[in-house]
Amino acid sequence: MSNKALEICTLFAGPSLQGIDSQLLCSDGLVIRPPIKRGDVERLVAQSSPSNLAIVDGVFHAHPAVGHAEILDALAAGWRIWGLSSMGAIRACEMDTLGMTGFGEVYRKFASDPDMSDDEVTLIHQSQEPFLSLSEPLIHIRKFLSEWVAVQIITPEQEQHLLHYLKNMWYGHRTLNCLKDALQALPVAAEIIDSALANFSIYRIKNLDLIDFLKLQPWTRTVK
């Protein structure tokens, strides 16, 4: 891989970009593309010299999801590929022994818990830029509820009841308004609920993983 290629990273992302400082997206050599779908990696490899690729968000309904075979072909061709936050974290967990590199808390959760399902990171979002999220991934809500248990706002039993309720719901219906309605059924003051939901971005680990990735810029590091 040439030094010039080392400086380029094509990053497939959409809703995980929400709320990210635009300055982080202005790095030289960083190319932002929409959420990945089947065939995107194959086309990129056919059109470009081996370089760096980061898979963050992906689609799976309107188009087939990014395939394992095309990722393997890209790795074999000399590309460095990271997976994080959402679809990327799932693929990295599945392929981290085959050369793909996982990054961030979401990836670590999938790698350490065989019972983690794809549904944890799934959401609905706008079909066009800026791909704003229209629902909240369960993994974010799980993080939030875990924190509330830790500070004893809710009990572990209440946490499990809420998670069971949300887990059995279609992911598109998991919104902050839905969560608020569920929390209001508990003996928790309204102002505590409102304050927590107004600052919910601190629990959005998909977005936080991407922020860390953009700050660290691992694609600029020399290949060993």
Rank of each mutant, 00 (worst) to 15 (best):
D181V: 09
G102W: 04
G104F: 03
H125M: 08
D209Y: 06
H140K: 07
M100E: 01
F103H: 09
I124N: 04
R221T: 13
M100F: 06
L208G: 05
I205Q: 13
L163W: 01
D28M: 10
P218A: 03
G99Y: 01
V59S: 14
N177D: 14
G39D: 10
A92W: 00
T175W: 02
I55R: 08
L216A: 15
S201M: 09
P187W: 02
R221P: 00
P137F: 02
M169Q: 13
K109C: 06
D73T: 13
L11T: 08
C93D: 10
P34Y: 03
E147A: 14
M116H: 11
G83L: 02
M95P: 06
S51N: 10
M169H: 07
K224H: 13
C93S: 14
Q184M: 13
K167P: 02
E42V: 11
L166V: 10
V56S: 03
R80E: 05
G172E: 11
A111L: 01
D40I: 00
D96L: 00
R38H: 15
K215H: 13
K109T: 07
W82Q: 04
S135L: 02
G99D: 06
P34K: 04
L17D: 08
Y203R: 03
L216C: 12
T175Y: 03
I124A: 07
F110G: 07
Q126S: 13
F110Y: 15
L123N: 09
Q217M: 09
S133C: 10
V151W: 11
M169D: 08
G99V: 01
G58D: 09
M87E: 06
K4Q: 14
K215Q: 15
A89P: 07
F103N: 02
E7V: 06
R204I: 12
S146Y: 05
T101M: 06
A65L: 11
P35Q: 05
A185V: 12
W219C: 04
L53D: 04
F103P: 04
D181L: 13
K206Y: 04
R43L: 13
E136M: 10
S195K: 09
K143F: 12
L24C: 11
W82K: 02
V151M: 12
G172N: 08
I154C: 05
D28P: 09
F12G: 05
P15K: 04
I36S: 12
A92Q: 04
L179C: 10
Y171I: 05
H125G: 04
V121D: 03
S133Y: 02
D194T: 07
W148G: 00
W82A: 01
W148I: 00
I81G: 12
I90M: 10
M116S: 11
L53S: 09
Q184Y: 11
G83P: 05
E157P: 08
I153D: 00
K143R: 14
I32H: 11
D96Y: 09
L214W: 04
V223Q: 14
A77H: 07
I32M: 15
M100P: 03
A198P: 04
I90E: 03
L84P: 07
S85Q: 02
F131H: 13
E70N: 00
L17K: 10
F60L: 06
V66N: 05
V56I: 15
W79T: 00
V41F: 10
G19H: 08
G67H: 08
H63F: 15
D115W: 06
G19P: 13
H61E: 15
A54K: 07
K37D: 05
H161V: 13
M87C: 07
I81T: 09
V31L: 12
A46T: 12
V45T: 11
K4S: 14
S112G: 09
Y165V: 14
